[in-house]
Amino acid sequence: MKIAIASNGNTLESCIDSTFARCNFFVVYDPETRAMEFIPNPNKDLEEGAGSASVKLLESRSVQKIVASEFGMKIKPLLDSLKIQMIVVKGSKKTMKEIMVMLNH
């Protein structure tokens, strides 16, 4: 089960980014194998369509859940149609490490 986290940096101390579509890095984490990968977000400077491009990227990595502090309204129907779960962590300064520890529950 791969889970993507929208991160503002590429270290374990990086915090959850304030947006999903234009975050700096996606961390793809698998709690079963504890494997993780930091992927620079190629869509962060797109004027339009950053959301759907980011969803496509994560879908191609077989991600089934996404943790972010905010998703755009257009993203929800798209993720629903792909059966990718959204986990919204609002107004938090949680680090990648803290989130991964929670995901290991």
């Binding site: 929800k76 629903d80 779960q85 959204m86 919204v88 962590v89 609002k90 929670m102």
Partner: peptide
């Protein structure tokens, strides 16, 4: 517990 919101896509 943690205060997060999540949906059920399935």
């Amino acid at each position: 517990g943690c205060g997060c919101n999540f949906n059920n896509p399935e």
